[in-house]
């Protein structure tokens, strides 16, 4: 593996990590404040991608598509909250897991019914479609850098809001003790709705951002959902900082592991066996890392204080 190749893979890993962060941020907030496990967070990402694809095709511009997809994803999230999730806040985790699994079943088929089973593709907008020369000879797609930038921007914005505004203070207080916040006269339902809407919109944003890179298809949220779970478990459920660190970690490991694992194994095994074991091991790597982290820190890297 040449240094150039490694550098590009590190950037790819960061870009993937940023997408994971956008999804994990909402999931970890919703969980932290509402103690609500939302399996349907992955399909909200999928719906975001479909909305972006549909609005882009309709308007002919990715930016108009994105601008329309975000509020649509927000409205869609709030609709789900009103129809289903609202009835589950005071239930145990088992009920929450099951009912939100029902939402996944429904939506994975519903997108098939509306947009067909064939994957949709969204072209990268012309302005962002070029490559940029990072140093001599290393070309990197601008669009992927834009994703990294968006992820960083959202991360900073969330950091500022959560840590330095009144709303953020309520969110943090809600994550520590929601009944107490309600008892002090805060409209906790409204706070829940704001947190939930933010989470839904961020998942939608992640879906819309990856739409030009991946094919938009039914079930695309399922795999991402599991990775997001790994991220928030490693980071510590409810912790925004943990989600950011763990998302980048998982993004990097998952991307680099596919290249590094076989080449490391080549030192101890013959090449054919190394590449076989390596490709088998690479997708398992992040779960092994998760097991390792939880072995020593059962509440993740940045546990919430209660």
């Amino acid at each position: 593996m040449t240094p150039t190749f490694a550098f590009i893979q590190i950037l790819n890993g960061l870009q993937f990590g940023m997408i994971l962060f956008l999804i994990a941020a909402g999931l970890t907030l919703v969980f932290g404040v509402m103690d609500f496990i939302n399996l349907a967070h992955g399909v909200q990402y999928m719906v975001g991608a479909y909305l972006a694809a549909a609005f882009t095709a309709w308007s002919g511009s990715f930016f108009i598509g994105l601008a329309l997809a975000l509020p649509a994803a927000l409205l869609f999230g709030l609709l789900l909250e009103f129809l289903v999730f609202r009835h589950l806040y005071d239930r145990d985790h088992l009920d929450q897991v099951l009912a939100t699994f029902g939402v996944i079943l429904f939506l994975n088929q519903a997108v098939k019914l509306v947009w067909g089973a064939e994957p949709l593709s969204v072209p990268i907008p012309d302005v962002l479609s070029g490559t940029i020369e990072l140093s001599d000879g290393i070309l990197y797609p601008v669009y992927r850098l834009v994703i990294i930038g968006v992820g960083l921007g959202v991360g900073l914005l969330l950091y500022a809001v959560v840590n330095h505004t009144r709303l953020g203070m309520l969110v943090r207080a809600g994550a520590t003790n929601a009944p107490m916040v309600a008892a002090l006269g805060v409209n906790i339902r409204l706070l829940f709705t704001i947190v939930f809407g933010t989470g839904a919109m961020l998942a939608g944003l992640a879906g819309a951002m990856v739409a030009p890179l991946l094919s938009v298809e039914p079930g695309m949220g399922d795999h991402v959902l599991i990775l997001t779970f790994v991220v928030i478990v490693i980071g510590g459920i409810g912790s925004m900082r943990g989600a950011f660190v763990a998302a980048l970690l998982i993004g990097l490991i998952d991307t680099l592991g596919r290249f590094v694992a076989p080449s490391v194994l080549r030192a101890v095994l013959d090449p054919a066996a190394a590449s076989q074991v390596g490709t088998a091991l690479a997708p398992m790597l992040i779960y092994l890392i998760m097991a390792g982290v939880l072995c020593f820190r059962p509440s993740g890297l940045f546990p919430m204080k209660h």
Partner: peptide, 12 residues
């Protein structure tokens, strides 16, 4: 681990 962590880690 406990609670939600257990659900997610068994899933993973």
């Amino acid at each position: 681990t406990k609670g939600a962590y257990f659900i997610m880690i068994t899933l993973a």
